[in-house]
């Protein structure tokens, strides 16, 4: 099988940089993203949601603006009638039931973690990412420097899904802003 080349290839430079002392931000590119979209129709949303939840090993499909974490992956409600299955293959759906789509190469997956991750991300994203307003399990489609991006707060931090063509440009902005908190790229 051919090699998957990241949009950040040649520009992803693992290191410790910026403010000395404790590390406030950890940036990670999560490579080899597996991401499938499943969509239902008005009368099949429940059934499609259950199939999606089964695919990721979750108890139930998430509602709007949220995610369900399962044994095989996670399920994110990304649009009113669409979910993303993260880390899992899509279930088989008849067209009368819904539609599946492999979008694994369409996004670059960046994880932000650390004490200052919320602060850094809110330097770019215009939505309230505080723990109270955007707790673990929250999902949003929002804007980053005019570009539509998806963000999901997992147990490990903020999972950013950047459109691949914009990923390097947005990565450079994140990287530049992270130094003030003491940053590490792993």
């Amino acid at each position: 099988m051919a090699n998957r080349i990241s949009a950040l290839e040649g520009h992803y430079n693992p290191r410790r940089y910026g403010k000395e002392g404790s590390i406030g931000i950890t940036l990670t590119e999560v490579r080899d993203l597996t991401l499938h979209q499943i969509a239902g129709w008005v009368d099949t949303m429940d059934a499609v949601g259950k199939k999606g939840a089964t695919a990721v090993g979750a108890k139930e499909a998430p509602g709007p603006c949220s995610a369900s974490h399962g044994s095989k992956g996670a399920m994110l409600r990304i649009e009113p009638m669409k979910w993303w299955l993260y880390g899992a293959e899509a279930p088989s759906l008849a067209s009368s039931e819904g539609a599946t789509l492999d979008v694994s190469h369409s996004r670059t997956h960046i994880r932000l973690s650390g004490e200052n991750a919320t602060t850094l991300l809110n330097r770019h994203l215009p939505i309230n990412l505080s723990e109270a307003a955007f707790p673990v399990g929250s999902v949003a489609s929002t804007a980053f420097h005019h570009v539509g991006v998806a963000v999901w707060r997992s147990e490990e931090g903020f999972e950013l899904f950047l459109p691949r063509g914009f990923a390097l440009s947005l990565w450079e902005m994140l990287e530049a802003g992270a130094g003030q908190f003491g940053a590490e790229i792993v």
């Binding site: 063509g165 914009f166 440009s169 450079e172 902005m173 802003g177």
Partner: peptide
């Protein structure tokens, strides 16, 4: 803000850019 030089507008690269 940080929207200067190459970031004045978001720069969109094709996968074959490099």
């Amino acid at each position: 803000g940080r929207g200067v030089y190459d970031h004045f507008r978001p720069l969109r690269r094709t996968p074959m850019n490099a």
